[in-house]
Amino acid sequence: MATKSLLARKKLMAKAEEQLKYLSNGIFKDELPTFRHQLEKIDDFPLKPKALEILQLNLGYMCNQVCEHCHVDAGPDRKEIMTKETMQQCLEVIKTTKAHTLDLTGGAPEMNPNFRWFVEEAAKLGVKDFIVRSNLTIIRANKKYFDLPEFFKKHNVHVVSSMPHWTKGKTDKQRGSGVFDKSIKALQDLNAISYGMPDSPLQLDLVYNPSGAFLPSNQEALEQDFKKALKEDFDIQFNSLFTITNLPISRYLDYLIASDNYEDYMYKLVDAYNPAAVKNVMCRNTLSISWDGWLYDCDFNQMLEMRVNSPVQHIKDYNEEQLQNRSICVSQHCYGCTAGAGSSCQGSVV
């Protein structure tokens, strides 16, 4: 398993431009329909936003893990971190936005040196649903993070954490050696202060994304399997499981190409294309803000450097009304959000 990002390894797929080129050529030249073509068929091109519900802030690409399928290409060698100045600009936006959910992601957002200050300030603004996407191992990575569960509780943070499987082998294969044991300990710590427990207001959700070149199965059935196994084996409880389809970008795209799975995977995504999922894709109710303040339709478009198609492109110029008039940028990676029951940072959408 790699210990460095694609960027540090100087791999071709570290470049957004190369990824987009790859996704628009080959089988999409003559065998498979482009995503735009699918939208045109249902009169949904250009794709337009619905009411804004979620502001997703990427606090930086630095992470203590180097997961095989990371769409961010995050890792310890990534130095892109949101500054306090940009955070202050985000706070100004949070004061006036119509979005009810604030979603902090990374990398490991907790590794941003101003993470705690930002959470404290944002929590004062009365966000209805305040999500932190925590990779769990960060809580056990260093003594300075051991109190994160208490910190989350104090600010009524909704914790959403990745967990590819309920067995050690599958989890460690995707996320690195030792990740499973640390994640289990972190989940037990969170349960101990009533995160994810029945009747507790403290929300603890898990995110499942397949550890290989296949699509996720039914979210409800997988949630039942996760709940049963984690309860029986480790006495762990959680609220909901979100299944997320791996999008063919960044490290996952690199993996698909290297393992000769790219074509089959794209066929699977296109075969499973569900027009009903287009109605609820997350880019229609979400805005993604990068570590350096640029605005995107979603976290995936951020990684592909596809900025919003709007005169307003940076948080310093934020104008929600104007942004609502934009057309959403799409490419073939968008098939990942419309396969089967659909996929989003909040799980399936149909």
Binding site: H165, W166, T167, G169, K170, Y208, P210, G212, F214, L215, P216, S217, A221, L222, D225, F226
Partner: peptide, 10 residues
């Protein structure tokens, strides 16, 4: 095999 992987079968 693929169906089993999707369902989390080990």
């Amino acid at each position: 095999t693929q169906d089993g992987l999707q369902r989390g079968i080990t």
